[in-house]
Every structure is written in structure tokens, then in C-alpha cells.
């Protein structure tokens, strides 16, 4: 069974960066995507920063595939909604009472570009960072261990949850449960499907908690770690610099220093 992480192990310099440094890079791209005033500049973040980074990390094909696969539903729906319903003067196409306007298309392009940068920045982070290392870095910096644990576990348990839901569905259908048909039929089918999922998951959680207890999960006292994260002074400096740039971008945007 696979885990729902995108992480691709590659021997690249980017992979070997400290997880917080990668997080800073991605944070920078996200803030830039939100604050840059010109659509073209936002697209440039994708083309000239994120794509080269992905290539450097030897994950470019997966990066392009995932980011383009995820963006098209946004692109399509934004174009339709903004194109037809945003106010504007330049009518490109008239369909009965509806008119497709240039201003709307431009707006849709702008939103799409920003969403593309956000989504693909997160995808890139996931492609090049092992989730447990990222969590380790965050807990070292003060994130409560329990929260890190919950996030990581959720990542790995979700596919199992899906699998169990499928088994439950199979087992009820085998007992003649009709899952197709009108709404009433389908609603009635919900209880036999959801109840065992919840009940069996509670049983499982109890066991998992016991297994963790037996391995000292709630023990008081200092902890150590098998993996150490390599950090360097330049990386630390870069993270501070990124933080300043992010703050400057936000400030500039808020104060109206940057305009299209």
C-alpha cells in the first residue's frame, strides 16, 4: 500500500537542504504569488523560479504533471465565471444574454496564475521534502510533538481509511444493500457504510495508542532523534533574508508601493 505523499527521493542539492530552508523558498514563492501586482510577474515566478528549482531537484516531470493536472479545473471554472460575470466593456463573444468580456478573461488569468504559483509551490515542497523530516525540523523549532505526530499519521492512515471504506461497502453490498438509485435509497445506505467505519476506526485508535504507550510516547524527559538535519550558516542567513523579503513584499503591497 502506498502512502499519499508525493515525495520523490533524488540525490540532488535541493533535496539535501534543511527542510526549513525549503520551506522558506516555497514561502517566498507563495508570498510573491499573492503580492506581485502584475500577472506576468506572477507567471515569471512559476517559469523562472519554481520550474528551474524543480529541474535542479530532478523532479521536473513530476512537478509539471502535478501542477498542470491540478490547475486546469481552476483555469476552466475561473475563465467561465469571471469571463461571463465580471464587469467589463470589451465584449469578445455574445451568447444570447451572456457576454464573454476581455476584462473577465484577464482577471481569470491573473487568479489562475496566482493559484498556479501557490499550488505548484506546495507540490514542489512535497516532492523534495520527506514529511517526517519537515515535521522533525518544525518540532525542533517548537511545534508540539503531538501535532507533528497527528499530521504525519493522518498522511499515512488516510489510504488505509479509504481501503477500509471500500471493504465495508463491499461487505454491505454483498448483503444486498442497494447503493444505487434515488436519493432516499442512497441516504438510507449511509448508516451501514459510515457506522462500521467510525466504530472500527475507534477500536483501531485504541490499539494504536497502546502500541505507542508501550514505546514510551508519553514518557517525560528529553528525546533524541535517529535522523539529524544538516543545517549551515548560509542556509540560516538565507532563511532570514527570505523572511525579510516576504515581509517587504507584504508591506509594499499593503502600502500600495507596488502597482500594475
Amino acid at each position: 500500500m502506498s502512502t499519499p505523499t508525493l515525495y520523490l527521493p533524488r540525490d540532488s542539492r535541493l533535496h539535501h537542504l534543511h527542510p526549513l530552508t525549503k520551506l522558506a523558498l516555497i514561502g517566498l514563492a507563495i508570498v510573491a504569488g499573492a503580492t506581485l501586482p502584475v500577472t506576468l510577474w506572477v507567471i515569471a515566478v512559476y517559469l523562472l523560479i519554481l520550474m528551474p528549482l524543480a529541474a535542479w531537484g530532478k523532479v521536473l516531470p513530476a512537478f509539471l504533471r502535478s501542477s498542470l493536472l491540478l490547475i486546469w479545473p481552476f483555469a476552466l471554472s475561473l475563465t467561465l465565471i469571471q469571463g461571463f460575470f465580471a464587469p467589463g466593456e470589451h465584449i469578445l463573444l455574445q451568447l444570447g444574454p451572456l457576454s464573454l468580456k476581455l476584462e473577465g478573461i484577464q482577471l481569470a488569468a491573473d487568479y489562475t496564475a496566482r493559484i498556479l504559483v501557490w499550488l505548484s509551490a506546495v507540490i514542489l515542497l512535497m516532492l523534495i521534502t520527506r514529511p517526517d523530516q519537515l515535521m522533525l525540523a518544525l518540532t525542533e523549532r517548537g511545534l508540539p510533538r503531538q501535532i507533528g505526530y497527528i499530521i504525519l499519521t493522518a498522511l499515512q492512515i488516510i489510504p488505509r481509511f479509504q481501503q477500509r471504506a471500500e471493504t465495508i461497502l463491499d461487505s454491505q453490498r454483498a448483503r444486498g444493500l442497494e447503493t444505487e438509485g434515488n436519493l432516499v435509497k442512497r441516504l438510507r445506505a449511509l448508516v451501514p457504510l459510515v457506522a462500521p467505519l467510525i466504530l472500527s476506526s475507534i477500536l483501531e485508535l485504541d490499539e494504536r495508542a497502546i502500541a505507542l504507550e508501550a514505546r514510551g510516547f508519553t514518557r517525560a524527559g528529553p528525546r533524541t532523534s535517529l535522523t539529524t538535519l544538516k543545517d549551515t550558516a548560509p542556509q540560516s542567513a538565507f532563511r532570514w533574508l527570505s523572511l525579510i523579503v516576504m515581509l517587504l513584499l507584504i508591506l509594499a503591497r499593503a502600502a500600495g508601493w507596488m502597482t500594475a
Partner: peptide, 8 residues
């Protein structure tokens, strides 16, 4: 196999 994935 597993009754817990059925009983509701």
C-alpha cells in the same frame, strides 16, 4: 473476514 468492517 473482519466483522468490525460490517457490523452497524
Amino acid at each position: 473476514q473482519n466483522p468490525d468492517e460490517q457490523l452497524f
